[in-house]
């Protein structure tokens, strides 16, 4: 594996391998000194064109726990503000020497373009509406941790699928691991075409709830209100929000997941977010171990984890 750009590139075996290595790193992160020398001497650059504190911190702490050197390229205070092109920025960083670059960008496809321009490994940390593979990996890991396996599990992904890179990566990842995925959203928040998507789709969340093993709630972005995709946030909540009443219709043991940050009271009720079935903080914790596994597999050939 040279880059991690899309869940589609991994295949079942690739996903399985990352999840297996993640397990070792979950053990590492539980140690008193959660650090291994696996990537000593390697340089990892985090290049975030779109601010995302949690994903950036997760990657950076994963890299540090592997003993890699971490360079943070801060777009807000850099040459980018002086008009430097994406390609020039990337080539400049490359010239300083790096082994991997973790890229987040508001435009779909930027990690692909970067991978054409550099020798280093490229990790997609979220590109536009397109993909966010490490999120899908940590979600799959979290489900497996709680439910044992994704095989035959019924998972609903609820909300703004159209604009969601998390949804795109998760549909691919959950399906690859054997889950039955259903998208639940108003038609204005679905992609214009679902041709080739290995999932079902419905607008009736209530009918689906009693059959679910996992409900994955997507963040509802307030800026969508200006695009006439929904009459109001209130209407969204009343039809698609995971309220306490809806959560009560989930089977016992069903998992409630959310990629964060949450809009409490919009897509998920506060009491649901804090309830025992919710694994949202577990997702965050596993995020570091998954990203350690990804960086280790990309850069650590030959090194042992211990």
């Amino acid at each position: 594996m040279k880059h991690l750009l899309s869940m589609a590139d991994l295949g079942v075996d690739g996903i399985e391998e990352i999840l297996r290595v993640t397990e070792s790193f979950v053990e590492v992160t539980a140690r008193d000194i959660p650090r291994v020398p696996a990537l000593r001497g390697k340089t990892i650059v985090s290049l975030f064109y779109e601010e995302s504190t949690r994903t950036r911190l997760s990657f950076e702490s994963a890299a540090k726990r592997l003993s890699a050197d971490v360079m943070t390229f801060s777009v807000a205070t850099s040459s980018v503000q002086k008009g430097e092109s994406l390609k020039d920025t990337v080539e400049t960083i490359q010239a300083m020497g790096m082994d991997a670059v973790v890229v987040r960008h508001a435009s779909a496809g930027v990690p692909w373009q970067v991978s054409q321009w550099v020798d280093a490994s490229v990790v997609n940390a979220g590109d536009g509406w397109h993909e966010h593979p490490t999120q899908a990996l940590l979600d799959a890991y979290t489900i497996r941790e709680r439910l044992g396996s994704l095989e035959g599990r019924r998972i609903a992904i609820v909300g703004d699928v159209k604009h969601s890179r998390v949804a795109r990566s998760n549909v691919l990842g959950f399906h690859a691991l054997g889950a039955e995925v259903t998208l639940v959203a108003p038609p204005t928040l679905l992609p214009p075409s679902l041709e080739g998507w290995p999932c079902e789709v419905t607008t009736d969340l209530d009918a689906l709830l009693p059959k679910l093993d996992v409900i994955y709630v997507l963040r509802m972005q307030r800026e969508r209100m200006t695009e006439a995709v929904l009459p109001s946030m209130r209407e969204y909540t009343s039809r698609y929000g995971l309220t306490a009443r809806r959560a009560a219709n989930l089977p016992d043991g069903a998992l409630v997941m959310h990629p964060g940050p949450m809009n409490r009271g919009v897509e998920i009720a506060a009491e649901v977010a804090d309830a025992p079935g919710t694994v949202i903080t577990r997702q965050v914790a596993n995020g570091v171990a998954v990203r350690m596994a990804v960086l280790f597999l990309l850069l650590g050939s030959g090194a042992s984890i211990a």
Partner: peptide
Amino acid sequence: HEGEWSSRLGIPGIP
């Protein structure tokens, strides 16, 4: 073009 590929690639489409 808005359709299968724009949806998959996460690129806003033109119908």
